[in-house]
Design a protein around this nucleic acid. Structure first.
Lengths: 196, 196
DNA sequence: GCGCCAAAATACCGATCGGTATGGCGTTGT
DNA sequence: ACAACGCCATACCGATCGGTATTTTGGCGC
């Protein structure tokens, strides 16, 4: 049940923000009432943290699935990037959710730590992927760390931009976004006949 | 008085967010009471919009001051960039305030329009500056618009990152940030003896 | 069947806060 | 002197919502 509540919280927070959802709504979404919710969580804040953990796990699960059985460094990097774009940029709900994390993290040190931990692990993962791809000669970067930092910043910037210009993250733009981010990571320019 | 209330609202929102400040606090900060505040503004929402307008005007005033009497295209671009970094990245209060705009804009079309209008004018201004500097041979970009988009995305990404890693926007990092953004805009790499 | 415990439901509480109603004061115009 | 108006202060209102207290329910073991 706590996992179901966390999932419900995530779903509703991603739609209306942390302050836009009350606990009765979350409980109802999970099929129980607020009293039951309080049996499992001590406060709304605790539930927010659980919703964040839910999101981080979901992202990690997607990456693991995308990389299962993939050994080629360049392919691993590209798959990771595609999942990230699909999950973090194309999905409006997830964009809204992470924006709520940022805004609330200003005043909540634990939330901030949680995000930073997540962000750092994502970043280190990318750095490792880029380095492996560079050794394999698939990408060319002077400094893997800097390229990853720039790529992640660009992703965050796109996310922000999409909040008021949702069309830049429409399905028809996905491939363009992926290509732009790949370029930052040092992938060679796309060829007309390259493998999708 | 309405301007004073808007300024007070901006100052407090930039510290605690839109939902973290009540109208009594804003009124007190402006030296009046809530009744007087309601004489001038119909609702908290209207006050939020006034605070946003205050911020946009402040930014524009700073740019105008920085560019007064500057005619060299490269200098104009660099000055604009420095003011933007100082105002939008180095100033924690302003970072917090703009994050609040983004989060609220998801559910407030007018707020969204206001921000988009501001963002578009900033963007067009940069494109104009980059093109002028390119004609003057001071920067080298294949596509001014794309370079500006990337630079602005990077700025937004840095802003987000700074929310949980404030040290990346510390005074000692300012020059590094400026140089990184200049590089995106096609400025030549810094020389050891270049003019500050 | 009874007791225990976990989980859930229901009713309630107090604080908060945006918003409203009303009265007061100072200034200006007639 | 009086009326009108702008601006302001104070008191009040109702809705909301996180959180608490109490009761109920279901499952399990004996």
């Amino acid at each position: 049940m706590p996992a179901k509540l966390a999932a419900s919280a995530f779903a509703l927070f991603a739609e209306k923000g942390f302050d836009g959802v009350n606990l009765d709504q979350i409980a109802a979404h999970a099929g129980v009432t607020k009293g039951s919710l309080y049996w499992h969580f001590n406060s709304k804040r605790e539930l927010i943290h659980a919703a964040c953990a839910h999101y981080y796990r979901m992202y990690q699960r997607r990456i693991n699935e995308a990389l299962a059985g993939v050994t080629d460094p360049a392919a691993r990097l590209e798959h990771t990037l595609r999942v990230a774009v699909r999950t973090c940029l194309m999905d409006q709900a997830n964009r809204v959710f992470t924006m709520e994390i940022f805004t609330s993290a200003v005043h909540d040190a634990e939330l901030r730590r949680g995000w930073q931990q997540f962000y750092d692990s994502v970043r280190e993962f990318y750095i490792g992927l880029v380095r492996a791809a560079a050794v394999a000669g698939a990408v060319h970067v002077a400094d893997a760390e800097q390229a990853v930092n720039l790529m992640l910043a660009a992703m965050e910037g796109i996310k922000l931009r999409a909040l008021f210009e949702p069309e830049i993250c429409s399905p028809t733009e996905e491939e363009r976004l992926v290509e732009g981010l790949k370029e930052i990571l040092g992938f060679p320019a796309p060829k007309p006949s390259r493998n999708g």
